[in-house]
């Protein structure tokens, strides 16, 4: 009986130690102490919007999905809807993407009125460390027509307040 209790106590101690290690702030790269933040903030931090456009030509755009991969000095801090009312609802994305440099964003609309041509589908707000321009890659995963078929489209972006 004594040894069972001893085993339980040892297990609990090990579990507590492991959990303590896992949950300590240093274990999460996105979670830095104020000291580390102060150190790394020697370089200037700025926020810029990244406007993402999809051009589906004459075909109405019913669904779209793209992926953004940026360098480590870029962090995604927010996602804003596009300009067309068909995509007024918030786009889908993994919340884990926030404060990271990779995100997959997608949306669809079953509305009658769908955008054609070049339309701004989303604005991604970026936090950039340093003075350099953000280095990122946009990949259009898929664009869909009203009937659900895949359509050819191009994706472009613009950094800054101007659209």
């Amino acid at each position: 009986m004594r040894y069972a209790i001893l085993a339980a106590v040892l297990s609990l101690a090990t579990f507590t130690a492991v959990r303590g290690y896992e949950t300590r702030p240093e274990a999460d790269p996105a979670c830095k102490t104020s000291f580390e933040t102060a150190d790394s903030d020697d370089a200037a931090v700025r926020f810029v919007p990244l406007h993402v456009f999809i051009d589906s030509g004459e075909a109405p755009l019913a669904a779209w999905q793209f992926e953004l991969n940026a360098t480590s000095d870029v962090k995604i801090v927010g996602v804003e809807n596009g300009e067309h009312e068909a995509f007024a609802e918030p786009a889908y994305y993994d919340p884990a993407a926030l404060m990271n440099n990779r995100i997959i964003i997608a949306a669809f609309s079953t509305a009658d009125a769908l955008p054609t041509g070049r339309t701004r589908v989303a604005t991604i707000h970026l936090q950039i460390t340093g003075d350099a321009d953000p280095d990122y890659e946009l990949i259009l995963t898929v664009a869909g027509a009203r009937d659900g078929s895949e359509i050819p489209a191009t994706i472009t972006s613009l950094v800054g307040e101007e659209q």
């Binding site: 019913a62 669904a63 995963t141 869909g144």
Partner: peptide, 9 residues
């Protein structure tokens, strides 16, 4: 992908 969601919708 999003087309699966769209088709289900």
């Amino acid at each position: 992908d999003i087309l699966d969601a769209y088709k289900l919708a």
